[in-house]
C-alpha cells in the first residue's frame, strides 16, 4: 500500500476534522482526543474503505460516531438524556445566560446533536446533502427537514436570547 499517499490524504483532512470536533466538544483537548481516535481508527480500517469514495465523509462518519458513543458512555444513558441536560443549562434564568445565548456557537450547543451536526457538516464543512445523510445514516429527505428545523431553532434562540421553544424539564 502506498502509505505516503495515505498519509497525505489523511493529513489534508486534519484541519477540517479538528474544526468539526472542536465545534462538537468546544474543548481543545477533548477535540484533539476525538480526532486522534478517529485517525487511529481510520488507519486500522483504511484497507476496508471503498477506495473509489471520497474519504472525507468516511472520516466525518467515524468521528461523529465516536463522539456520539462518547456522549452515551459518559452519560451512561440514552441520547435523550443529553437533550434534557442541555435543557437544564439552557433554561438558566437570569441575564447572563440570556446574553451568552446570543453567541452563535453557544446557541448551536443547544440544538439536538443531529441538528447541530448537520448544520456543521453542511454549513461549515460543505458536505453535500447526500454525504451528510450517509454520515448520519438517515434518508436525504429526513436530512433536509432536520436541517430546516435546526436552522429554525438556531434563529429562534438567537432572536429571543433563550430557547423559548423548549418545555422546561424539571
Amino acid at each position: 500500500m502506498a502509505s505516503d499517499d495515505t498519509t497525505a490524504l489523511l493529513e489534508r483532512q486534519i484541519p477540517a476534522l479538528r474544526r468539526f470536533a472542536w465545534a462538537l466538544t468546544r474543548d481543545d483537548e477533548a477535540a484533539d482526543d476525538l480526532v486522534q481516535d478517529c485517525l487511529e481508527r481510520a488507519l486500522t480500517r483504511w484497507s476496508l474503505r471503498r477506495p473509489e469514495v471520497d474519504p472525507r465523509p468516511w472520516l466525518f462518519t467515524i468521528l461523529r460516531n465516536l463522539h456520539v458513543d462518547g456522549l452515551r458512555r459518559r452519560r451512561g444513558r440514552g441520547a435523550e438524556v443529553e437533550w434534557s441536560e442541555d435543557t437544564d443549562v439552557a433554561t438558566n434564568d437570569g441575564v447572563d445566560g440570556a446574553l451568552e445565548l446570543r453567541d452563535t456557537l453557544a446557541a448551536l450547543d443547544l440544538l439536538p446533536e443531529e441538528q447541530k451536526t448537520l448544520l456543521l457538516l453542511v454549513g461549515v464543512e460543505d458536505l453535500s446533502y447526500q454525504e451528510a445523510a450517509r454520515v448520519l445514516d438517515l434518508p436525504v429527505g429526513t436530512v433536509m427537514s432536520r436541517l430546516a428545523r435546526g436552522r429554525k431553532r438556531l434563529r429562534s434562540i438567537l432572536e429571543t436570547g433563550r430557547p423559548s421553544f423548549l418545555r422546561r424539564v424539571k
Binding site: 495515505t6 498519509t7 489523511l10 493529513e11 486534519i14 484541519p15 477540517a16 479538528r18 474544526r19 472542536w22 465545534a23 477535540a31 484533539d32 480526532v35 486522534q36 485517525l39 488507519l43 452563535t104 456557537l105 448551536l108 448544520l119 456543521l120 454549513g123 461549515v124 436552522r151 438556531l154 434563529r155 438567537l158
Partner: peptide, 25 residues
Amino acid sequence: RLRDVLRARLAAKHAEPIPARLRIA
C-alpha cells in the same frame, strides 16, 4: 448570515497548525 457567522467563528480552529500528536507518522 448565521451560516457565515458560524464559519467565521470556527475559522481560527481550522487555521491552527496540526499538533504533533495528530501527525499520521
